[in-house]
Design a protein around this nucleic acid. Structure first.
Lengths: 109, 109
DNA sequence: AAAGCTTCCCTAGATTCTCTACAGGGGATA
DNA sequence: TATCCCCTGTAGAGAATCTAGGGAAGCTTT
């Protein structure tokens, strides 16, 4: 028996970028926000989140700096770069394209 | 530089099952049909298709028999089993759930 | 009848992505 | 001091798809 994933593969980067579009945020906050915005449907595991953040920063789509969280903990705050905003737009439009195509097929009788 | 995939990961099985819901069909025909139904947006590569068909048959969701294609070639025809119809319903509803959640997030301002 | 194109099936290996399962620091609370 | 929670991170596994092959057999062209 196999478990099902908590996400649709390939959408994590887009979701993170989208969360950061709402404002700078630390990693842990991003995962909470994604869960809340999706009404508990989407759950980003920590083992997915942090490597993804690293990847996104490597690509230059987000930048980070250490700060202090609302709960007075050390936290790394991320924000979108200009390239990140562009990337978000691109990934969003690609998502629209693909999900529309899938729905087209699912609705065929 | 990385290529983008031709599909959203995790949706191939569902698309194949959906295609077979329209009637029995051979593998090659399934890939052509998926491309057509999606208006050339989704492209199933052969190296993805045949292993997927094997997987689906292993799971008991489809069954196959050799026959002759419209073009007089030897071809393996697949059709949905009862379990396959159930699986299709399940995967479809999971897709709805996840894609709805993603769209919810993308529309947040 | 030879050569080449098309249809159809299949496999191996690489890659990419996410998950599970860890580990650890440090503030808050009792 | 003990314990809980917040927050960051890493290693290794597993699943899914892609690239890049190979091969058989019918049809078409020459």
């Amino acid at each position: 028996m196999k478990e099902k994933t908590d996400l649709l593969q390939g959408t994590l980067d887009m979701l993170i970028l989208k969360a950061l579009q709402l404002g700078p945020m630390h990693g842990f906050g991003i995962s909470v926000l994604i869960r809340q915005m999706s009404k508990d449907v989407l759950q980003v595991e920590q083992g997915s989140l942090y490597p993804a953040l690293y990847r996104l920063e490597e690509q230059g789509w987000i930048s980070s700096e250490w700060g202090t969280s609302e709960n007075n903990r050390k936290a790394k705050f991320y924000k979108l770069t200009a390239a990140g905003r562009k990337q978000l737009a691109e990934e969003t439009s690609n998502w629209e394209r693909l999900s529309t195509a899938i729905n087209l097929i699912l609705k065929t009788t």
